[in-house]
């Protein structure tokens, strides 16, 4: 198998792979000149990132909802581990609802995902053990209100990022750095996960009210503002710019 044949096989089977191979043979260029765009094109075709802008935004909201459901379910785990809260039936029921809602988002079925997210929100609100989980389920439900065609989220990166975000300082620094690098590299192919990360981190604005109340000096307020407002806004701005740039024909 030639390097060209191997690369063209990376494209989905409904792509004109044989025709591309014919063009590559006719141009007769060295393979390293063609390789970057072939690889990028194959990954973009596989990720489904070729949608129009409206669907890219919609996919980002669904991916953000998935991140929030995973982060919401993961949020009380640290408190449980350190004995700050005790496991109870409401918490288990919340996990089941959040897990099923996440599965529904991954399958692209919005309405069941919305119903299950609202159930998780109601249960978490009744349990009152984690403000972060309540904020995450609230924003997930709001994002799932947006109607549109089924857009399954099968990329594992949002789930890994959400877990990393929820378990925060208990993760080894190298794994957090690896995830950040993975997010940046994936953004070269598909900007929607970066946008989803910005949207999901906006849930921090809900919990920021407590942090603002606890901040005793202007420097503390600045840090809260930068973390809770600046980072999500920056990620959304970069993601939106990339969508605009890539959709432009």
């Amino acid at each position: 198998m030639t390097p060209y044949e191997a690369m063209v096989r990376l494209y989905p089977s409904d792509h004109p792979r044989d025709e591309m191979l014919g063009v590559l043979e006719e141009t007769g260029r060295r393979w390293h000149r063609e390789a970057p765009s072939l690889l990028l094109g194959a990954l973009r075709a596989r990720s489904g990132g070729g949608h129009p802008a409206r669907l890219r935004w919609l996919y980002a909201t669904r991916a953000a909802a998935l991140m929030l459901l995973v982060a919401g379910a993961t949020a009380p785990i640290l408190d449980l581990r350190y004995g700050v809260i005790l496991l109870n039936n409401l918490m288990i029921a919340t996990w089941i609802c959040a897990g099923l809602a996440a599965a529904a988002v991954m399958l692209g079925t919005r309405v069941p995902a919305l119903g299950l997210s609202l159930s998780a929100l109601l249960l978490a609100g009744t349990d009152q053990t984690s403000t972060a989980a309540i904020a995450a389920y609230t924003l997930a439900a709001v994002l799932l209100l947006l109607p549109g065609p089924p857009l399954p989220v099968r990329n594992p990166l949002p789930i890994l990022l959400a877990i990393a975000w929820a378990v925060d300082y208990t993760m080894p620094p190298w794994s957090q750095s690896a995830l950040m690098i993975a997010l940046l590299l994936w953004t070269l192919i598909d900007e929607r996960i970066l946008l989803a990360t910005g949207l999901a981190l906006s849930a921090g604005l809900i919990t920021a009210t407590e942090e603002v109340a606890a901040a005793t000096d202007p420097r503390g307020l600045m840090i809260v503002a930068a973390w809770r407002l600046g980072i999500p806004l920056a990620l959304i701005a970069v993601g939106a710019t990339l969508i605009h740039h890539r959709v432009k024909a």
Binding site: M20, R29, P36, L38, G50, P52
Partner: peptide, 18 residues
């Protein structure tokens, strides 16, 4: 144009009906 760039553009232009 590289082949990868051409086919990404052809995909997009076909989808946009151009």
């Amino acid at each position: 144009l590289s082949t990868g760039t051409l086919y990404q553009a052809l995909d997009r232009l076909s989808r946009d009906g151009l």
